[in-house]
Amino acid sequence: MKLFLKKLILFSLGLIGLLFSVQIIWFNTYSTPPPTVSKNLCFNTKAMFLKHHQLQSDVEILAIGSSMSLINLNSNSIKKHFKTDRFINTAAWGIGMLETYQLIEIYQKKYQPKTIIIASNIADFRKPSTNINYTAFEQYLTEGLSPFNHLRANNFAQAIAEAQHYDWYKDDSTHYTSLNFDASGGVNYHKEGFNIDSARWNGSGFKSDFMVGIQYVYLDSISRYCKEHSIKLIFAQTPIRNGLMLKLNQDEKQILNNHIDKVKSIVTAYKLAFINSNNRTWPDSLFVDISHLNKEGSLLFTDYLAQQLNVDHFKQLKFK
């Protein structure tokens, strides 16, 4: 028994030493990686951003949702039109309606926003895939997490890949997976030097099985939640580049229009604001792929929202 325990302890000590060395090498090689509160590096990075942001409560306007909110909403334009600095963009890639609904409850507790903006397109209604650990996320925002969190939630290969990716893209605005957040949490794609991927540029049409019903149910829950908590919700349908719009066949157009009608009926049923930017054309020069805008595009889109909304009038609206 003694020999067995002795060998077991020796083996364990060796292993602990080995892991400890790897940790030291790692922290000396890469920046401190974001906490692993989901399988989505952008969301994890956003969690770290929110944790260290100067705004920790009483937010006037909060943007939430997917890359549509992250990239297509221009922070400066929002601050200018709404005449406030108390704006924060919590959006991250791949956040659909299901995740948005879960997150709104967390953000409501923390920030008590008066207005929430969701910029969205049809892709946000796909099968959910982000796998956010909401408990860990909330715990991280309020208390913090163990420094070994990223190791417990990931394997080494994933953790190092995430750390590398974070290092590469935290200051780069010329890549689709840029993590270069502005002061409010938005991302502005630089037009110059942006290496447009032809597959992403051409994209694909919309299939009838593209969306899942549950996402619409969650949009309804989001709308109801905002209504019940006297939050002014602005739901904006984001633009699609004109080149692609012209190529859509009848079936694809029908699918897109049906989606827009459905979303509009859900949001307006609660007397909340719905804006469809596809009522006008958006030239290809404003895009980096079928639906993500460059900085110039995001400025125009956000201005368009403000114009459609009539901000001064909107601010005086009372939802209760």
């Binding site: 292993l15 080995l18 892991l19 190791l151 990931n154 394997n155 080494f156 290969a157």
Partner: peptide, 10 residues
């Protein structure tokens, strides 16, 4: 093997 367990933990 132990490192593979940590490295490839899915």
């Amino acid at each position: 093997i132990t490192i593979a367990l940590i490295w490839f933990k899915a």
